[in-house]
């Protein structure tokens, strides 16, 4: 990824704590803009000290709405993440893939698990 655009999450958010969905949206918009220009993207989490699934859903998970799994895998790379943050990101990515493959799946899952109660 020698021609890659590097996005410093800390710089975009302006904080070590990346917890807000709105902040994730800002990161997403930069990644998406670069991908639309055909660029590779490196997303660096250097100096980030706290993440939530809400932030990562907005920043990364949302990419699967506009770009294919193959495209994301080929063009996006993350750097400087601790192992447990990578685990969280992996879960966010898996959830996003499932969500965009079939958004109704989640409703079906609810019905399957619980049935309707007609409370």
């Amino acid at each position: 990824m020698s021609d890659a655009l590097t996005i410093q999450v800390y710089e975009v958010v302006g904080s070590v704590l990346c917890v807000a969905s709105d902040d994730g949206q800002k990161v997403h918009d930069r990644i998406a803009a670069a991908l639309r220009e055909g660029r590779n993207v490196v997303v660096s989490f250097r100096n980030v000290n706290g993440l939530t699934s809400a932030f990562l859903n907005a920043a990364i998970g949302q990419l699967y709405d506009s770009f294919s799994e193959g495209e994301i895998r080929a063009k996006v790379r993350v750097e400087d993440m601790e192992q447990d943050d990578l685990v969280l990101l992996k879960r966010v990515v898996e959830t996003a893939k499932a969500y965009f493959k079939d958004p109704e799946r989640f409703s079906d899952a609810a019905r399957e698990v619980l049935g309707d109660d007609d409370a």
Binding site: S21, T95, Y99, F106
Partner: peptide, 17 residues
């Protein structure tokens, strides 16, 4: 809490928190 379900809709997925 189950995790297989989200009340989110639209472009940002959810259901994990």
């Amino acid at each position: 809490v189950d995790g297989r379900f989200t009340t989110k809709s639209g472009p940002i997925p959810g259901g994990l928190g």
